[in-house]
């Protein structure tokens, strides 16, 4: 019997860990290695080891692209936060039965492919799309606005797609908020605004950071949004990475860019763990911030 349990234990853990090791851990290490390799016409990547890929990362032209990418991703994150926080808050105010339904309704559009939804947005924002038509109908503008093929469109698309990823951790954090803390603050003389700033926000900070984590980085990688809504002039980091692997075949450079993303991820994770600790929670798998 003990043997059977040991066997079960071995397989159940072994299967999952070997899968993840082979398809996540090892490849990640490979990428880091490749980022230090050189490239030429015949090979994607070859020795000798070099820093030239990272040199390209710090190229001023690229830094401009990176800066724009970061800017758009940050704006999308901000918009998601500004829309998502009040939304999550209002949902927690609803009676218990409705909450599940509301969250579900928010997730539902996910059941259509993201690309299809971006396509819908491109429609929506086009010269003859609903927004322009309504604005013209209300007499607010004469000529249709050039909404599409701009940074605005990309940000709109990113926030549209990633909103649920911001709302979920926020909702979890707000639900778990210990209301007796707010009552204690009230008792000690804090008004609504003060309670919000000094109690609610700090106590939900892990959720906020988690939400930003789940929006900012993916946003930088969503090349298809830039493709369809950006008109080819505005690029996200994801587009640059994609180009290296699909077109120019400069694998070291592409890998170096991915390493940059991984570094950013680590920084944000560190921020999350720090904020988690300050609110007295352990963070990690057991915690359902995500």
């Amino acid at each position: 019997m003990k043997k059977m349990i040991k066997g079960f234990q071995f397989w159940s853990i072994g299967l999952a860990s070997s899968w993840l090791s082979l398809f996540v851990l090892v490849p990640s290490i490979l990428i880091v290695i490749i980022s230090f390799l050189s490239t030429d016409v015949e090979h994607f990547a070859r020795l000798p080891l070099t820093f030239s890929a990272y040199g390209k990362v710090f190229d001023p032209l690229f830094l401009v692209v990176l800066g724009n990418s970061l800017k758009m991703a940050l704006m999308a994150t901000l918009i998601c936060l500004l829309i998502g926080y009040p939304f999550a808050f209002l949902i927690t105010q609803l009676p218990q039965k409705l909450r599940g339904l509301m969250m579900f309704l928010m997730i539902l559009p996910f059941w259509t492919n993201s690309l299809v939804r971006i396509y819908a947005i491109s429609f929506f924002l086009g010269k003859k799309g609903l927004i322009n038509q309504s604005l013209q109908w209300f007499g607010l503008i004469d000529q249709p606005l050039n909404l599409l093929y701009s940074q605005f469109a990309i940000v709109y698309g990113l926030s549209y797609l990633l909103l649920p990823f911001m709302v979920m951790p926020l909702y979890n954090a707000l639900e778990k908020l210990d209301h007796s803390l707010l009552e204690a603050a009230k008792d000690l003389g804090a008004n609504s605004f003060q309670r919000f700033v000094r109690v609610t926000i700090p106590m939900t900070m892990p959720g906020i950071v988690a939400g930003c984590l789940m929006v900012l980085l993916p946003a930088m990688g969503m090349f298809y949004v830039a493709d369809l809504l950006g008109g080819g002039k505005n690029l996200l980091l994801g587009n640059v990475i994609r180009t290296q692997f699909i077109q120019t075949r400069d694998w070291p450079y592409g890998s170096a860019l991915s390493v940059v993303m991984i570094v950013l991820l680590s920084l944000m994770l560190w921020g999350y763990l720090k904020s988690s600790r300050s609110v007295n929670r352990k963070g990690g798998l057991g915690d359902s911030d995500f």
Partner: peptide, 27 residues
Amino acid sequence: AMSSLIFVSMLTPDIVTAIALLVIFLS
């Protein structure tokens, strides 16, 4: 270690996952 691996896999942006997989497949 396993928990950390799971956690990090979840958070890695799709684009990094994508090229990581591409690299291992081709290798």
